[in-house]
């Protein structure tokens, strides 16, 4: 859970950086997309580095999902679903909302990734019109309000997931053995959640509001 999660956090940061290239204009964005495929040439064939990233990511996603399912099933067996009769304190005593939505939010993110790949990578769905330019596909899509709404819901889910997930991953790996270091870890994971959520949302909202066109 922890290692695969942190690999994905690294990917998200890189991906967000790439997306923000949209503010540098069509040429910069499309070149970046092209450059990703040229990375590592001539040692690697065209698209080679991207494929390596894809394989690592795919393994991380698979490991993350398998562990999540195992952990959830253990937890449902150990604690049950309708554990207590009383209706009081169902959200617990101190747990964060983020920890409460980890499983449901994870599911939302998984569905989003499929939708997102179908949209911008496989181009099975092309809201706003297809185009050979990744930049134009992006702009076409985000000019449509419901596309922006779906991306917003997903990014909030990602933010909540990271708010709990980053700190939890670090604890699992044995960091945070003093209350001071745990405060730092918690602050980092809250900051990271905000940066990633807002960083990703900057592009769709700028397109929708006409800042990027």
């Amino acid at each position: 859970m922890a290692v695969s999660g942190l690999i994905m956090v690294g990917y998200l940061l890189a991906h967000m950086y790439g997306n923000l290239k949209a503010f540098a204009g069509q040429q910069a964005f499309d070149e970046y997309s092209h450059h990703l495929r040229e990375l590592g040439e001539p040692i690697l064939p065209y698209g080679g580095a991207l494929w390596i990233i894809r394989v690592v990511l795919l393994v991380a996603v698979a490991a993350h999902v398998v562990s999540a399912v195992k952990l959830s099933r253990r937890s449902w067996r150990a604690a049950g679903v309708n554990r207590y009769e009383t209706r009081r304190n169902r959200r617990g005593i101190q747990r964060s909302y983020a920890s409460f939505t980890l499983r449901s939010g994870g599911l939302v993110i998984a569905l989003f990734v499929l939708y997102h790949l179908a949209h911008l990578t496989w181009q099975w769905i092309t809201p706003g019109g297809a185009s050979p330019s990744p930049y134009e596909r992006l702009v076409n899509g985000f000019n449509i309000w419901w596309v922006v709404v779906t991306y917003t819901i997903a990014m909030v889910a990602v933010g909540l997931h990271l708010r709990h997930g980053t700190a939890s991953a670090l604890y699992t790996l044995g960091a945070g053995t003093t209350s001071g270091s745990r405060r730092v870890i918690l602050a980092v994971s809250v900051a990271l959640a905000w940066v990633i959520t807002l960083g990703f949302l900057a592009v769709p909202f700028s397109v929708l509001l006409g800042v990027v066109s």
Binding site: M1, L71, R74, S75, R77, A78, A79, G92, I93, Q94, R95, S96, S99, L102, H164, A167, S168, Y171, T172, L173, G174, A175, G176, T177, T178, S179, R182
Partner: peptide, 26 residues
Amino acid sequence: GGCSNIGECTAVCPKGIPFDTITRLN
């Protein structure tokens, strides 16, 4: 079940066992 670092345990422990015992165990 498996621990997912939620911390409800430390909120109710009558002896105030701190969360860092868990990170030490990890």
